[in-house]
Write a protein that binds this DNA or RNA. Structure first.
Lengths: 194, 194
DNA sequence: TGAAATATATTCACTGGTGAGTATACTTTT
DNA sequence: AAAAGTATACTCACCAGTGAATATATTTCA
């Protein structure tokens, strides 16, 4: 029962996470992942049955942390509902200015796997985005807004638009614009409700 | 001067367009493109100096047709400005229901090339998205709206969000939701203006 | 309790195949 | 003949995945 600093499986996943996010799924080989993780490729295949399996695990490992991050940004923000929603986008703007930022791992993986609709990683990705949407809808519902699900979809669209647009232009200002739009839509819904 | 049905260069570009869009940039090899175009790989390298060069040409070839499509959808729509904007999204919804639809080629390429920020294809992609944004801003300006550039950005964000979100969920309904949000934002801006 | 048996984890060395890109020669057009 | 276009056949690096062997726990039972 040697207490390793970290198990091989953990190191593989950590390394895959870093490389897949930084370089993209198809640009990263298992040879490189194994090398950077300090193990052999066969060990990767011992813990994951295929590259696709590792891709799926990669996305699964980002699910909770990502959602938690959004929640924290939302909860930590001052002001009313529109401002709290806007804060999510402002925090993305801040994150996007970091040189290592490369958009949303789920979206980029979806783009790469667009030719494999049933890929297990896509199921994980879709579920992740759905969780965000459901969370938003719940917040709007609690606030007594009309059509909370519709408004939540608008937020998702602005969020994914933010990730994509910034990736194209490498300009974090788009996140602030999205925050402004989100705030306006939420404020509009509140106006109608109250 | 044999009048070929189409020149080799045209066939290469057409084939690249089809395959890159359908499968993704890194998933498609020049060997396959050459084969499907009915020529040898060396001929590809005669007309394009590298794969990256062909990728750039691929995106460049989609620039005008794409923008023209959006314009047509916009102009053909009945109703006022909000409805015309909404029509763009409704038409995307229709297109997205076709099985061959795989999102936005520019966005998917940007996702794949996220690790190569200066890639020439990215310049083409960014310029394309900028043209859409500028066109929208011009329409809003002519209509006398306040802050036309800001509103145009909101439209771009919803548009790119639409492409991304549908790709993740394979559910064209998100385009209708985006159209609704876009309409509301434009109508809101018109309300303030007049 | 301690040795044998079993399960878990890991390595080395490999395969069959594909990828981007090229050296050279042939063919068509001007 | 010169230039432009295309083909054959190749290189060399890489990639997903595997076969066989080895090391390291963990369990079993004499």
């Amino acid at each position: 029962m040697t207490v390793r600093a970290s198990s091989a499986k953990e190191r593989i996943l950590t390394t895959a996470n870093k490389l897949f996010y930084a370089e993209g799924i198809r640009a990263v080989s298992l040879d490189v992942i194994a090398e950077k993780a300090g193990i052999t490729k066969k060990t990767v295949y011992y813990h994951f049955k295929s590259k696709d399996d590792l891709i799926e695990a990669y996305l699964a490992s980002r699910d909770q942390p990502n959602l938690t991050q959004f929640r924290k940004w939302f909860e930590a923000a001052d002001g009313g509902l529109p401002e709290k929603v806007e804060a999510i986008f402002q925090n993305i703007a801040k994150a996007a200015r970091h040189p290592k930022w490369k958009g949303c791992g789920f979206l980029r993986t979806a783009a790469e796997l667009a030719n494999m609709p049933g890929h297990p990683a896509m199921t994980v990705g879709a579920a992740h985005k759905k969780k965000f949407e459901d969370w938003m809808a719940a917040e709007f519902e609690v606030a007594g807004l009309d059509r909370p699900e519709a408004l939540a979809r608008h937020m998702v669209l602005l969020l994914d638009g933010t990730f994509s647009t910034i990736l194209v232009h490498r300009d974090a200002a788009y996140a602030d614009a999205a925050g402004e739009a989100a705030k306006a839509l939420v404020a509009g819904a509140m106006g109608r409700a109250g």
